[in-house]
């Protein structure tokens, strides 16, 4: 049976109403904001927080940490994967390391890194460590998608190494890389905030979440969590929008 398509407004409103309604009903049933505040209490709290300069400084500092770490992780992951695709020796050295990073629980890494780095830098390093394996896999997937006929053409037509990368590899890899970066930044964001909550550096969304929990400010705890989620969605939408716009401009008439 064919599904009837839902109007666009409904696709946004319906899940919002259902989940917020459920939350509201549950909060009203419990009747204790300390355990579960209502959506309205959380929204009010978020509104109050958003009216302060400290809230925005905190958000921007966390964003900066995550982007710095995530960016470094992506650059490292792509570079090491490219080297591994080219040189067997590099693959032999780095492949097991990536597997270990992937299998290690993020909490273990946070505690370990905290031994060596200050609380301010732990989220940066953790974001990098979580982003790098994803960028690594995306690069390998991209390399596998390169048309071998074009690689042969580049050899026969004696393209320079850079021209081969620019004309043959990058266009074939860009979708896999873009998707990989998107996922990597998502992981960097979540793990970065988790690292902040454990290490509690100054001016950090993770620290704010921890403090709200410690002082039993449950509406604030929910408000900061909502801020983390909303900021993550907003940044992803912004970056994806920029990428799609650049893609449309670059592709021109190509399809």
């Amino acid at each position: 049976m064919k599904k009837r398509p839902l109007p666009k407004a409904w696709r946004v409103l319906l899940p919002l109403c259902v989940w917020l309604g459920l939350w509201w009903a549950l909060a009203a049933r419990i009747g204790q904001p300390l355990l579960l505040p209502t959506p309205w209490q959380v929204l009010t709290c978020l509104g109050e927080l958003a009216g302060t300069a400290a809230f925005w400084t905190t958000c921007l500092t966390t964003l900066g940490r995550v982007f710095l770490g995530g960016g470094m992780g992506i650059v490292a992951g792509v570079t090491l994967a490219a080297l591994s695709a080219r040189f067997e020796g590099c693959a032999a050295v780095f492949s097991p390391a990536v597997k270990v990073i992937r299998a290690t629980p993020v909490a273990s890494f946070i505690i370990l890194i905290w031994l060596w780095a200050s609380a301010n830098w732990v989220p940066v390093v953790i974001a990098a460590l979580m982003a790098a394996p994803i960028a690594w896999s995306a690069t390998h997937q991209g390399v596998a998608e390169v048309d071998p006929q074009l690689i042969e053409l580049a050899e026969v037509y004696r393209f320079s190494r850079w021209k081969t990368v620019r004309l043959v590899y990058l266009p074939a890899m860009e979708n896999a890389l873009a998707n990989g970066c998107r996922t990597a930044l998502g992981f960097a964001w979540k793990s970065g905030v988790a690292a902040e909550a454990l290490c509690r550096p100054v001016r950090a969304m993770g620290t704010a979440i921890w403090n709200a929990k410690t002082y039993l400010e449950t509406p604030q705890l929910f408000a900061w969590t909502a801020a983390v989620v909303l900021l993550s969605i907003a940044v992803e939408k912004l970056l994806w929008g920029l990428w799609n716009a650049a893609e449309r401009r670059r592709a021109g008439g190509a399809s």
Partner: peptide
């Protein structure tokens, strides 16, 4: 013949064009 004379200009049996390059860019690239 290409293997024996690798400096030859070779046209492959397939077009092997670059989807993101214009007609003119294909020529300028080589």
């Amino acid at each position: 013949l290409l293997k024996e004379y690798p400096d030859s200009a070779f046209l492959f049996q397939e077009d092997r064009l670059f989807p993101r390059r214009t007609v003119l860019q294909h020529l300028l690239d080589v």
